[in-house]
Design a protein around this nucleic acid. Structure first.
Lengths: 138, 138
DNA sequence: GTAAATCCTATTCAATCTATAGGATATAAG
DNA sequence: CTTATATCCTATAGATTGAATAGGATTTAC
């Protein structure tokens, strides 16, 4: 299941990317437009800023804005920050690898093989889609 | 994340599919061989039997066995029974569809579009792989 | 009839996700 | 300089779900 954190984060990014200009948009504005709890969204935008996707401005007229052009934001980078591992099991994760403590040999593990294939196909989708593609399509 | 239920279920199916003949294999045997809690595995095998993947025999010399040939068990059918929806959000699920209560219009939703693409690519992997493929590859 | 195995439901335990609280900090504007 | 506005930040409460266990009922082989 996709976490609400990721879901809301994606919606916020898409909303920011669809703005005419790059003037800051307030949390309250995004929250209202996308039907998200403002406080929850606040923490999500915070991580998106800390990870280099968003810039922010404090005080009156402040808010958040995209740092890069949407076409230069591959979804794979966003997903890894918001959702974490792409793989469904840690033993096939590229960035969050962990050995299964119950599995003696990955090479002969049916789960490992199947989930490796799923990871690859999912990875491909996230790599070829940018934020611009999501905005364009919607 | 893949649930342990699914993980264990897949391992059990692969183990059963790799048996020489179709004589029943006991829960305790599978649990020991795959390092799974026996009681937990018990409930998993139960659902696999109720959903038509396994047959069982009670009493001495009893146990579980595959009903079909592994090559006739597409992973998509197994995954839907064990893990549930393939899609990461209900609003793009083919078999477990549910409308998002926060989203006014699916057609213009960035999350919907992206997750639809992920669902399609994942679906393809599950459809083209059978249990026999997993056993063969491992 | 006894031992061996599956069958079945309920319940507890733990982890994680979701959301909120409450104040600290910075900035624009008069 | 003061005030209103908005982000910044950490901690924590609340809700949901997943994992595992408990304990007995039922069926079958010998």
């Amino acid at each position: 299941m996709l976490s609400k954190k990721t879901k809301y984060g994606l919606k916020a990014l898409a909303y920011l990317g669809s703005q005419k200009d790059k003037t800051p948009v307030q949390i309250a504005d995004i929250a209202e437009h996308e039907n998200i709890s403002q406080k929850f969204l606040e923490s999500i935008l915070l991580t998106l800023r800390k990870t280099g996707f968003l810039g922010s401005k404090k005080g009156k007229g402040g808010g958040y804005y995209l740092i890069k052009d949407p076409s230069e934001i591959p979804m794979i980078t966003v997903m890894r920050v918001l959702e974490g591992p792409i793989a469904m099991v840690a033993c096939v994760s590229l960035n969050f690898y962990e050995k299964c403590d119950d599995c003696p040999d990955e090479a002969s593990c049916a789960v490992n093989k199947l989930m490796g294939a799923v990871r690859d196909s999912t990875l491909e989708v996230y790599k070829k889609n940018t934020l611009a593609d999501l905005i364009r399509k919607s």
